[in-house]
Nucleic acid binder design. Structure first.
Length: 452
RNA sequence: CGGGAAGUGGCGCAGUCUGGUAGCGCAUCUGUUUUGGGAACAGAGGGUCGCAGGUUCGAAUCCUGUCUUCCCGACCA
């Protein structure tokens, strides 16, 4: 399908909606990415959905690499399982409880430990089938006391949740490391730096747990973090069947903690290297042993022929929150600045004057050629004044803008603009395509954008 | 749930104190002139003022109730 913005649904808003108090919420509404349905619940519009989908696909790719298999559990769950695990009463009013026509107690899942454990106990019986690592990307509902900040704290939200099942503590920790490393790679691919910090295990329980926090001035929690984390290398060419403890050591040996876990004496050992800033929690990993497998009787036969409860872990990423988080971390007063990997479009060809047949044809030819070379490109063929088209593209945050109009073509050039730096370069019609296609084929489009 | 603020054309707001039958900017539609960073002029359409009661000759405005949204707090991906 041809991505013509004149035919696409992008309802941008010029003025700031009064209900949006933070940057990401404002820009998502203004850029036509989302609309609120009721408090804390949103409809995703085409542009927002493209970003969400890209993030989901990055997660899928990396989770599969780490050995996890995708499933999709139902959003509606039975209360019986929660009574069995003992969490039905604990979870409180955050859980949306529903009765069906027969009066049976159901609920809209706020998390899925019970359902996945139920699946596991029915299907897996032997230590030979372990480890088992499953994940899903699914809507969750938590009836927050006070939803706020748009997608940052909604009630309905998209979450990636993964669950590991192992024969013992030692192997369970290996699964934990797999997810830990996978997370480092996932957030890096999204174009953000999320730093693992020692975490409180909260209601999910367990002893080994880390939160991944995206650093942003507008973050919800105060964090203390060693400055080396900002430059540390992301694990590459990872052998997920090998020893991953070195990565884990590297990423946990230096100090990083949220304010509620902050211990001054520990931080002091690193002196001035600890910076105090703010962060947004985008991921959380837990290793919780047999907390659910015991009450739910998720057992396997071990080598000695004895039934033992499996050791479990769960691993979440707030997918829809990531969309907002990335905006918090990357924007200016004009709008969003998307990292290439998650931008709704990698680039847009801006047809300055759609009514000018000649220049418009050049714009369309370039568009088609780039599209044929796998670029995720759209053409802005809207019959608006160029100023408002520029303003929209800045707001929406398209990383790369290719401006094609009669004036430039007179001199034989088109203009390439980087959203991030605001810089532009004039290039011939041929050269611009060559360079973009080359960068795309080398998977270095972000570098190319950064070089402008 | 406690504290605060707000609901008036699609969006942002004024009008409410001091009741007299609704206005501004942006957006939309038509026409003309424009067109390389949110055009100009002329004209047009669109609101029973969140909802329900009440007071009054008369209510956006006063009173009572109710719903919704946002902000601060406890809670959290």
């Amino acid at each position: 399908m041809k991505m013509r913005l004149s035919r696409y649904f992008v309802p941008t808003i010029k003025e700031n909606p009064s209900e949006a108090a933070i940057v990401s919420h404002r820009f998502m509404l203004r850029a036509g990415m989302i609309r609120q349905s009721v408090s804390g619940i949103y409809t995703w519009l085409p542009l927002g959905l493209r970003v969400l989908t890209k993030i989901e696909n990055i997660i899928r790719e990396e989770q599969e690499l780490a050995g996890a298999s995708e499933v999709r559990m139902s959003t509606i769950q039975t209360a019986d399982l929660w009574k069995e695990s003992g969490r039905y009463e604990d979870y409180g009013d955050e859980m949306l409880r529903i009765n069906d026509r027969h009066g049976r107690e159901l609920l809209y899942g706020p998390t899925n430990e019970e359902v996945i454990t139920d699946l596991f106990r029915k299907e897996v019986k032997s230590w030979k089938q372990l480890p088992t690592l499953l994940y899903q990307i699914q809507l969750k509902f938590r009836d927050e006391i006070r939803p706020r900040f748009g997608l940052m704290r909604g009630r309905e939200f998209t979450m990636k949740d993964a669950y590991s099942f192992d024969i013992d503590e030692e192997n369970s920790v290996k699964s934990y490391y797999r997810m830990f490393v996978s997370y480092l790679r996932i957030f890096n691919k999204m174009g953000i730096r999320a730093i693992p910090m020692k975490a409180d295990t909260g209601p999910i329980g367990g002893n080994l747990s880390h939160e991944f926090l995206l650093l942003a001035e507008t973050g919800e929690s105060e964090v203390y973090c060693h400055k080396d984390f900002l430059e540390m290398d992301i694990p590459d060419n990872v052998d997920y069947d090998g020893d991953l403890s070195k990565y884990f050591q590297e990423w946990t040996s230096k100090y990083a903690a949220t304010d509620e876990m902050y211990v001054e004496e520990d931080a002091k050992k690193f002196g001035d290297d600890i910076i105090k800033t703010r962060g947004i929690e985008v991921g959380h990993v837990f290793n919780f042993g047999t907390k659910y497998s015991e009450p739910l009787h998720a057992v396997v036969m071990n080598k000695e022929g004895k039934e033992i409860p499996v050791h479990m872990g769960s691993y979440g990423i707030g997918v829809s929150r990531c969309v907002a988080g990335i905006i918090e971390a990357s924007h200016d007063d004009k709008g969003i600045i998307w990292p290439v990997a998650v931008a709704p479009f990698e680039m847009v060809v801006l047809d300055v004057k759609p009514k000018d047949e000649e220049s418009s044809k050049v714009a369309n030819d370039i568009y088609k050629n780039l599209k044929n070379h796998k670029l995720d490109v759209a053409i802005d063929d809207r019959n608006d004044r160029v100023g408002s088209k520029f303003a929209d593209m800045d707001l929406i945050g398209i990383p790369l803008l290719l401006v094609v109009g009669p004036r430039g073509l007179l001199d034989g050039h088109v203009k390439l603009v980087s959203r991030k730096s605001g810089n532009s370069i004039n290039l011939s019609v041929e050269e611009v395509q060559e360079r973009i296609i080359k960068a795309k084929s080398e998977d270095s489009l972000q570098k190319f954008v950064d070089s402008i």
